Simulated assay, not measured.
Amino acid sequence: MDIAPLFGISLTSPSIPSTILVYWRTSLVGSYKVNTDEYVKDRFASGCGIIRDSSGQCVHTFFSSYGECSILEADFKTILAQKIGLSDLWIESDSTLAIHCIIRGGGPWSIQATLSHI
């Protein structure tokens, strides 16, 4: 009971979360924004995404199945899946670990080949 809070574990009843308003921001003029999402069930992964221009208009959507892999591997494969010849991309992902690996390098060996392509 004493060390649980050190690991971010609450042993009390959770309170009802408040509503949070979230805004989607456009990319800079001349660039494109990629939003991705991934899903793993029974070790089989898939991912999808949407690419929008700086006015928010949809340029491209995509979906891929990856077979058996981790959620982190799926994150990277989805980011890489959007190869349609566009440059100056702003990529948004809900994976803090994926973004950390892209910006600072590192991560597990299973993602290194895909990471090097990104």
Rank of each mutant, 00 (worst) to 15 (best):
V34M: 11
S18L: 10
W109Q: 10
M1E: 08
S65H: 12
Q57A: 15
S13W: 00
G47F: 01
F7W: 05
I118D: 06
T96V: 15
A113N: 15
K41C: 09
D94N: 13
G49V: 06
S95G: 08
I3P: 01
F62Y: 10
G30K: 06
A74T: 04
S31D: 01
D75W: 00
S54A: 11
I16T: 13
L11H: 04
S54H: 14
L6Q: 12
E68L: 03
T12L: 09
I111V: 12
Y32C: 03
D2L: 05
A113F: 09
D42C: 14
R104E: 14
Y39E: 14
S54N: 13
L28V: 06
S70T: 14
S70W: 02
Y66W: 02
G105S: 04
S70P: 00
R52E: 08
N35L: 07
G8K: 02
S54Y: 15
I118E: 00
Q57S: 15
Y32V: 01
D2E: 05
T61I: 07
T26L: 12
G30L: 08
G56L: 03
S15I: 10
F76E: 00
A45S: 09
T78D: 07
F76Q: 00
R43E: 13
I103H: 09
S31I: 00
G85A: 06
Q82K: 12
Q82S: 14
P14R: 05
S10V: 02
L80I: 11
G67H: 09
L72V: 10
I20D: 00
S116V: 07
V29P: 13
E73C: 11
S46Q: 08
C101I: 09
S46N: 11
N35S: 11
T19H: 05
I111C: 08
E73P: 02
R104W: 13
H60Q: 07
G56K: 07
I9G: 03
P108H: 02
I84R: 14
K83S: 15
I99Y: 08
G106D: 14
I102G: 02
S65K: 12
G106Y: 15
L72A: 05
F62S: 06
D88N: 14
S27V: 01
C69L: 01
W109P: 11
G67M: 06
Q112K: 15
S55T: 15
T96P: 12
S13I: 03
S10F: 07
L6C: 08
L86H: 07
H117S: 13
K41G: 09
H100T: 15
D88S: 12
S10Q: 10
V34P: 02
